[in-house]
Design a protein around this nucleic acid. Sequence first.
DNA 1: TTGTAATTTCAATAATTATTGAAAATTCTA
DNA 2: TAGAATTTTCAATAATTATTGAAATTACAA
Lengths: 182, 182
Amino acid sequence: MNLSPLNERFVLHFGEMGSRWGVNRTVGQIYALLFISPKPLNADDIVEQLGMSRSNVSMGMKELQSWRLVKLVHLPGDRRDYFEAPKDVWDIFRTLAEEKRRREIAPTLTLLRDALLETPANEEERHAQARMREMHELIEMSNSWFDEIHRLSPETLEGLMKLGAKVQKVLGFADKLRGKDE
Amino acid sequence: MNLSPLNERFVLHFGEMGSRWGVNRTVGQIYALLFISPKPLNADDIVEQLGMSRSNVSMGMKELQSWRLVKLVHLPGDRRDYFEAPKDVWDIFRTLAEEKRRREIAPTLTLLRDALLETPANEEERHAQARMREMHELIEMSNSWFDEIHRLSPETLEGLMKLGAKVQKVLGFADKLRGKDE
DNA sequence: TTGTAATTTCAATAATTATTGAAAATTCTA
DNA sequence: TAGAATTTTCAATAATTATTGAAATTACAA
């Protein structure tokens, strides 16, 4: 691996964490490399810096693009594909949340919706359906909460988060609002 | 599989989703079964209902306990271990968020903290460190936001979420607060 | 077009992870 | 404590996923 020590450590860490995040080691490494790179890189740059096969990089880029974590760019007078990681960390955060919802939550929501439409055949199913209803409500609610958050601009969102210790106060206000409007 | 059709569908779905959620199929199935079960189950109940090996169930239970998604209970006059899934979906939600943070985020936070203490050796490292600083700030901020949320009771949290479309209004208030207090 | 550069696909295989039955260990009871 | 019930561990193997080099495809330039 052709990187200065600090950067290598970062890249290797992302490789190791990859499996916990649901991507393989090479995908984690490629993303880490692009994240800290000051300029877009082409596939051969990545092959050289990380010492993996060209085909592995090709597959890794496809995966990262499917997560919308990298974007394809072109340099004038160079026909090769270059890749870069979006810069704004808040935007990355939102993109990730969206993709995770789509892949990890949406299919279950669909299943729950279908299951709740059915007429339970016996007591066993009646009870199970009641539990599914609770799960369904939680997911629906988290989703609409997330939708709201998602509409905010990065700056606003950052402001809201920085609020930190004041959530309790906001909540007090929220309670009043709720009382008034519902 | 020894389950009525609706319940079987739910259990199989959780098995399939398991791989996206970072657990194996059997762990997903076991959790689903416990989630909809009206009463605690012992290992042999699970073996019988899901048709997997006894040792698989034993390992699965260990995994689920490490996630704090099931708890061990005992029935009077029966020495076997029984397991049940906690009932309150909000509580499950928080537990999961906590465990995910511990496993998927905390190690990276540690790495970033360490990396930011080092003196960059060259321009390459200086730029990388600046990017790491952005990531570090985002994570720290999300963490303290989550800590705040975490202190709320399930009822309060549910109330806050139900607020839904009113987040914008809350945010307006939050902005005022921020102006006043900082 | 034709040839070349660049990228993707694919089938082989390497590596990892899941599952199992049998054996070992543990826990209780008589 | 001895024996039975219960749970866990472990090593074998089944299944899945990752990685690669080579071949095929695509995109461009002369």
